[in-house]
Amino acid sequence: MKKLIIAVTAFGLLALGSLSVQASPQSDLKAFQGYFKKKFPKIKFDDYSNGLYALPEAADRRAEWEAIEEFPPYEIDIAKGKKFWVANKLGTCFKNGGQGIAQNYPYWDKKTKMVRTAELDINACLKRQGKKAIKKGKLATVTAYFFYMARGKRIKLDLSDPGAIAEYEKGKHFFWAKRGQLNFSCANCHIGGSGKRVGGNILSPALGHGTGFPAYRSKWGGLGTIHRRYKGCNKQVRTAPLKQNHKTYRALQLYETYMNTGLPLTAPSNRF
């Protein structure tokens, strides 16, 4: 127990880069993925894309989950998303018609000077055509189709621009900082706590976060975006959640997704 705590603390400091040595995203990535490799030596790298179901601790839940994935509840949403995508000629706004590019999202855009998500680009495309922006469930459905077109592709983000690094640093800070009345950081639950249970809930490793989003959750009764999931995790620790598409959530998503470099996309997925 003690050893673990010390290791986690040391890792936290290292990854926070609060020491004089400036940590680069590349060295953060190595430390981050190395931590999980050591903590769960039996989990195969690609399996992290399955969220908490990759954990040996969730073995009994995995069978049930796999059975659901045979006839996934989100199948109808993929069809709906595709229909909307085609009807609104969304492919015209994306590279390669939007096929097989989601693994590069989110990305830093020099022109608009912001981290852009798939959701943002979909709505920008609608706006360009003089159409109304979509929100919530509908936006999650169309985004799910966009990710579905890149299923299996490995995450690869471009952080070469200083603008991207600055946002990455903000996201990293948000991930590691304690907050809320209950005083939790994301890292508390999804790094140090990963594989443990809080009440009946098993905590997923942060490695794999986002690979399955938009995701279907029976709690939601439908698909939701990654930002919706972030809101849920903020509320749990009694902190005010941010709005979806908030700058800080986009930075957080950039950080979390970059930490998943090399993992295959599984979105949309069925998640607890």
Partner: peptide
């Protein structure tokens, strides 16, 4: 609990007036 372990997951029940 963060006094003994700054990274503790245990909420500071008194300090945060929980």
């Amino acid at each position: 609990a963060t006094k003994a372990n700054p990274q503790s997951m245990m909420p500071p029940f008194g300090r945060h007036k929980i």
